[in-house]
Structure formats: C-alpha cells, structure tokens
C-alpha cells in the first residue's frame, strides 16, 4: 500500500490479522487451518457467526498464506454481496473459475500452493436459494480442483445440501478477556491510555463484536484524545442511557396511556434506535424483582413480536407505543382483550 495512504487507514483494517495464527478466540478453526498449511488438505468450509468476529479475516488470511501474493489472483476468487451472485453468475463466472485446471502442488516462494483454487463466497446468506442450488453441481463436479469457503451470519440461510458438504465452524463472539487483550494491544501501538473500567465498558457495549470495539475506540480517540474514560466510550457507542428506559417504565407503571405516549414520542424525537431500546427493556424486565413471572412473560412476548416487526421494517413509533401499552397492561394487571389475536 502506498505510504501516503497509510495514515488514512481505519484501525479495523490496520489491525486486521494477516495470518491465521493471529486470529483471536476462534481456536478450533485456527487449529484446522494451521494443519491445512502443513498438509495442504482442505475441505469445503462454512464459517458462520455474528458480525465482527473474524470470519472474513480468517478466510482471506488462509488464502493469502496458501498462495502468496504471486498466485493469489489466479487461484482465489473472492465474491461478496457487493458482487452480483445471481444464478447467472453461478452458471458462468463461478463455474468457469471452478473448472480451470491447476498444476500439481509445488511450493513457490515459501508458500504451499496446493493444487486447487479457492472460491470465497462472503456474506453468502444474501444469495438466493436458486443461486445456491445452482452451486451444488459445480461444487461436486470440480471438487478436485476447487474448494469453497462460505461465510455468513445466519447458517439457516444456507441451504442444507450446501451446508452438509462443508466443514462447519461456528465463530464465537469474542469474550471479554480476549477482547481486552486485543484492545490493549492496539492501545499500546497507538499510545492510548485506557483504565480498567473503560476497558470493561468497551467489551460490554460492543457485545463480543471486535470490529465495533475498535471503531468505538478510534472514534473516542478522535473526540477525547489519548486518555479515554468509560463515559467517553459510552457517548460514542450510542447506548441508550438507563434513565430513558426508567422513565418509560415509570410512565407505564402510572397506568396513564397519554403519559406513556408522551414518553414514547420523546424517545423517538431523541432518535434512540428502538431495536436497541427493546433489548435494554428486556434486560430491565428480566432482572426486575418486583415484576411477577406472569407479567414478565406477557411483556417478553410482546417484545419478541415487536422485534420481529422491526426486522420486517415496521414503524418504530407504532411498535414502541404498542410495547409500552402492553407493558402498562401487564404491570397494572389489566387484562388484554381476547380478540387481540387478529
């Protein structure tokens, strides 16, 4: 990379591991792939797990380590959701690449260069079922000379016939301990000061997503300089302050619909993301000691339904108002109308 660009690099990219052994916390896959580097044996792979925990990183690293910079272009095809991967592309581009014959194994410039090519299908959960079906044949026909790496967040979006042909690896959210050690490493490199409280806040707010943790850290550094406190991190993370959640609860307890409606309007005007708010409400409800199990169940059921509606693209205000209304009915032990069920 040109030196001039170095400085405009984002930290997430700057600290992306280049070698499989540097990928943190995903021990199982690291072990298997380290083995691959020695034996050059490699099955089709399927990596799945939530965002920002090293899936893409691992796939790119192994491909680079197997082939080195010289052969990379001719041996690795990386397609992600930003590429058209409709059924046509599967039948043409992917098939053509898969069909190319490659010479026998020959170490080149210190790289193992095994006798196959790798096709990385990143973000594969966005491929249509038809396109996935069209892949089945290609995978089988050319399995001698081509290995497929599928990467996705939701394994359920990968059709069974594809999934069953792969060695599956579930990538785990990064634990607090590992996250802290990665973050401390970056802090050392960048000359930052982070106390223990800030460190644990950072892992809490990023919920196992290392990319998010690094982005927050970089944001906080720009805003607050090289000494970063727990509060600085909270303010860049967009976590909803606890008193906002409390205020909504208090309004619901009052049993006054208009009061709750006003609180909901306020939350929407402040721009707090409702999906996040729902999960924070959930935390409060589950831990509350003065709410009975039945009340908790009523509330949680509604939270789940609202969450699904939001995923479908429903309106944030209406969903939150409806949640507030149900929380109020539950807390005040008012019956729900039976005919609510459509």
């Amino acid at each position: 990379m040109a030196p001039m660009l170095q400085s405009s690099q984002q930290w997430v990219e700057k600290y992306r591991p280049r070698q499989v052994k540097d990928v943190a916390h995903q021990d199982e896959v690291v072990r298997v792939l380290t083995n691959t580097l020695e034996t050059t044996n490699c099955p089709h792979m399927l990596f799945y797990g939530p965002p920002g925990i090293g899936k893409t990183t691992t796939a790119l690293a192994i491909a680079h380590q197997l082939f080195g910079p010289e052969l990379y272009k001719s041996r690795v095809l990386e397609l992600n959701a930003s590429d058209d991967r409709g059924i046509n592309v599967v039948r043409t581009k992917i098939k053509d690449f898969a069909a190319i014959a490659v010479g026998s194994a020959q170490r080149q410039g210190g790289y193992p260069c095994p006798p196959y090519k790798i096709i990385i299908l990143d973000e594969a959960d966005s491929m249509t079922e038809d396109a996935q079906n069209a892949l089945r044949r290609t995978m089988e026909t050319y399995s001698k000379v081509t290995r497929f790496f599928f990467i996705c967040n939701y394994i359920s979006r990968i059709i069974e016939p594809l999934a069953s042909r792969c060695a599956k690896f579930r990538f785990k959210p990064i634990t607090e301990e590992i996250m802290s050690s990665r973050i401390l490493h970056i802090c050392k490199e960048e000359g930052l000061n982070l106390d223990a409280e800030a460190l644990s806040t950072l892992s809490y707010i990023s919920q196992g997503d290392l990319r998010r943790a690094i982005t927050y850290l970089q944001g906080a550094t720009r805003l607050f300089g090289s000494s970063i406190s727990s509060n600085d991190l909270i303010s860049v993370s967009g976590v909803i302050p606890q008193d906002v959640v409390e205020a909504l609860f208090t309004a619901c307890r009052s049993g006054d619909f208009d009061l709750a409606n006003k609180e909901v309007n306020k939350i929407i005007a402040e721009g707090y993301p409702v999906s996040l708010l729902l999960s924070q409400i959930f935390d409060v409800v589950v831990e509350a000691e003065d709410i009975s199990d039945e009340q908790k169940a009523r509330i949680c059921k509604r939270l789940a339904e609202a969450d699904k509606c939001l995923v479908d693209g429903a309106d944030e205000y209406l969903q939150l108002l409806n949640v507030a209304s149900h929380v109020m009915l539950a807390l005040c032990n008012m019956p729900e109308e039976l005919n609510y069920e459509s």
Binding site: P51, D209, G238, V274
Partner: peptide, 21 residues
C-alpha cells in the same frame, strides 16, 4: 431516519452519530 432498519453488520462498520430533534 430510523437506525433500527439498518442491518447490524452495517452499523458495526460505522461510528453511529445520533442527531436528536
């Protein structure tokens, strides 16, 4: 307008800036 409609994977790639009314 509504960040709930933006997928998690994109939100994880950005610094989120909330603009209150």
């Amino acid at each position: 307008n509504s960040s709930s409609k933006v997928i998690e994977a994109i939100r994880s790639r950005c610094l989120n800036v909330r603009i209150n009314a």
